[in-house]
Design a binder for these strands. Structure first.
Lengths: 147, 147
DNA sequence: TATTGTTATACTCTATAACTATA
DNA sequence: TATAGTTATAGAGTATAACAATA
C-alpha cells in the first residue's frame, strides 16, 4: 500500500521536520565548542588522513565554496592546518591537528547525547532498526554520507 | 550501548542530512504546482475546518510571520480565503477553497511518490517500521507534527 | 494592557558565477 | 585550456522586534 491519505504522515514530510529539529538540537550542544553540525563530517573524514578540499566537497556532498567556509572556521578553532601540496601547488592538503582530533571526540559524544534525547521514546530494538533503515535509505537514495 | 564511534552514523546526523534531501525532492515535485513543502501542513490542517492564523502557527510549530507569508502564497494560488471573524474582528478565519482541497490531494499524491522513491531500497516491513518509529520520535520529542 | 495579524529586518545555510594561481 | 581554491553575491528558510487594529 503506497497511497497515503495525509501528507504530514509520509516519511518525506516527517523526515524533513524531524531532520530540522534534530539538527537544531545537535547544534545547540555543539555551539559552546564553536562547532556546527556540518563541521562534523569534515572532522570525521580527516581522521583517515589528509585530504584535498575538492575531495572533501565531493565526499560530503556540498559545493566547494561551502568547504572553504567550513575550513576557515575549523582552522580558526585550531582544529586543522592547510598544507600546500608540493607536487601540485594548486592543492591544499587538509590535516587534523591534535586539537582537531579532540574536537571530533567531543562531537561524537555530543551526537550520542542528542541521539539519546531523540530516541528516548523508542525501545532499544526500534532504535537499532531506525538506525539501520536510515543508513539503508541514505545509500539507496544516493545521499552522500561518509562513514 | 549508547556510545558511538562516529558522528555521521548517529541518528541525529543522518536525520539532518536525509531530512534535507527528502525535503528537496518533495519540493521538486511540488514546484510545478506552485506549492512548497511547508504549505502542506497548512492545507492539511484546514481540511478539518477554518482556523485562525495564530492557531495555525502554534499547531504547525512556526513563527506567526512565517504563517502570514505562507498564507499570502496560498491565497495567491486561490487555495484559501481570509475571512474576518465577526465575533473578534482581530482574527481572520482561514478557509480552504475547492481549489485548495484539490491542491491538497495533489500534495498527498506527490508526497506518496516521494516516499516510494526514498523507500525504494527498503522492504515493505522496514518501511512500515521506519514510518512508525519516526512518528513515535516526533511525538516523544515534542516536535509539532499535525496529523 | 493584551492579543491578532503584519511588516521590517537579520541570520543561517546553501548554491552559482566570476576570479587567481597554478597546471 | 583545465583545475584547485577563493570571493562575491543571491536565494531559500526561519526568527525577532516593532507596529496597527482590535479587544
Amino acid at each position: 500500500m503506497t497511497v497515503e491519505e495525509s501528507v504530514t504522515g509520509t516519511v518525506a514530510f516527517m523526515l524533513g521536520k524531524l531532520g530540522q529539529a534534530a539538527t537544531g538540537r545537535f547544534a545547540d550542544r555543539l555551539a559552546p565548542f564553536g562547532l556546527r553540525p556540518r563541521h562534523c563530517a569534515v572532522l570525521e573524514l580527516l581522521t583517515a588522513g589528509p585530504q584535498a578540499q575538492l575531495a572533501l566537497a565531493r565526499t560530503i556532498g556540498v559545493t566547494p565554496s561551502v568547504v572553504v567556509d567550513m575550513l576557515d572556521e575549523l582552522e580558526e578553532l585550531g582544529a586543522l592546518r592547510r598544507v600546500r601540496d608540493t607536487v601540485d601547488r594548486r592543492r591544499q592538503l587538509i590535516e587534523l591537528t591534535p586539537d582537531g582530533h579532540g574536537l571530533r571526540r567531543t562531537a561524537v559524544r555530543l551526537a550520542g547525547e542528542t541521539d539519546e534525547e531523540l530516541l528516548g521514546g523508542l525501545t532499544a530494538e526500534e532504535a537499532a532498526l531506525l538506525r539501520r533503515a536510515l543508513g539503508r535509505m541514505a545509500s539507496a537514495s544516493g545521499i552522500p554520507a561518509p562513514g
